[in-house]
Nucleic acid binder design. Structure first.
Lengths: 139, 139
DNA sequence: GTAATAACTTTCATAATGCAAGTAAAAATC
DNA sequence: GATTTTTACTTGCATTATGAAAGTTATTAC
C-alpha cells in the first residue's frame, strides 16, 4: 500500500486519499442507492469511465474503505461493501451536501432539496439511523 | 464557459468545484492560520506549486468562495478573504479532520491530535466560535 | 538608484483523466 | 452442448491537469 502523504495534517492526509472527483461518489452510491457491483457503479448519473472506476475500486479497497467479496454460488459478480472506515465518511458527505444546498442554489434544481431536508433538522439522528441501516444490510 | 457540473447531485456538484487536493488546503490556511496573501499560501507545509496556487486562487474567486482585495497604501500585496460561501466550508473541513483522526492513526502523529481535540467534544460550539472569529477579523 | 519582495506567468516534463474498443470468464438462453 | 449475454474488467491513445523550475513585472525597501 503506497501512500504518499504530503504532510502530517489530518485535512491534507484525507485529501491525499479521497481528494478527487470520483471516490466519494462511489461511496455515495453505496450509502444512498445501495449499489454494490461494478456494473451498478458504472451506471451512475455522472458516467464514470470504466478504467477510472476500476482504479478507484482498487484504491478504495487498498485503503480499506471498502471490501470486495462474492455471494455464494456466484463466481462472477463482485460485491463491494463499506468498511467501518468507509461508513464513517457519511458525516463528510452530509456536510458537503448541505454546503451545496446552501450555496449552489443557482445550479441545483429542486430535485436536490428533498435529500438534504431528510437530515437538515436532525443530522446526528440521521447519521445514527444510517449507521444502523448499514449494520442491517450486512446481517 | 465549460460545462461545470456533471449532474444535479449536491455531492457531485460540490466535488466539481472543490474536489481536488489543493482548494480546501487554501481554505484551511485562511481559517486556521490566518493566511491571506499569495506568499503566505505559497509557504504551506504541503508545498503547492505557484502555478497551481495561482490557478486555484483565481478559481476560488470566480466561485465566490474567496474575495481578492488590497490594503490602503499598498498596491502590491493582494489580500484574500473568505466569503460567506467560503466560511461555510468549515463544517466539511472539520468532518474531514475528524475522519482522519479516527481512521488514519497509522499515519498521523500525535501532533495532529490537539487540533481535532479542540472541537471533538463540542463541534457546534466550535463552529459558532469560529464564525464569530471570522467576523472579528473583518472588523 | 539598486535591491528585494510579491505576485504572478511560462515552459516543459510527467501524471491523471476520458473515451472507445477489446478481452475473458461466468451465467443465461436456446 | 452451443451460443449469446452479462460482468468485470484491460488496453491504447488523445486530452487535460499537475509539478518543478525559471522568468517576468510592478511595487516597495534601502
Amino acid at each position: 500500500m503506497k501512500q504518499k502523504f504530503r504532510s502530517n495534517c489530518p485535512i491534507s492526509s484525507a485529501l491525499d486519499l479521497i481528494g478527487d472527483k470520483w471516490s466519494l461518489l462511489i461511496i455515495r452510491d453505496m450509502m444512498f442507492s445501495g449499489k454494490k457491483t461494478y456494473s451498478e457503479f458504472s451506471n451512475s448519473n455522472e458516467k464514470i469511465a470504466t478504467n477510472i472506476l476500476s482504479n478507484r475500486l482498487t484504491m478504495l479497497e487498498e485503503l480499506e474503505i471498502i471490501n470486495k467479496g462474492k455471494l455464494e454460488g456466484n463466481k462472477k459478480t463482485n460485491i463491494y461493501s463499506l468498511t467501518q472506515k468507509g461508513k464513517e465518511l457519511l458525516p463528510i458527505i452530509l456536510e458537503i451536501a448541505q454546503w451545496s444546498d446552501n450555496n449552489l442554489n443557482d445550479h441545483l434544481q429542486d430535485g436536490a432539496k428533498p435529500f438534504v431536508n431528510k437530515f437538515k433538522s436532525n443530522k446526528e439522528g440521521f447519521i445514527q439511523n444510517m449507521y444502523a441501516r448499514f449494520e442491517k444490510q450486512e446481517g
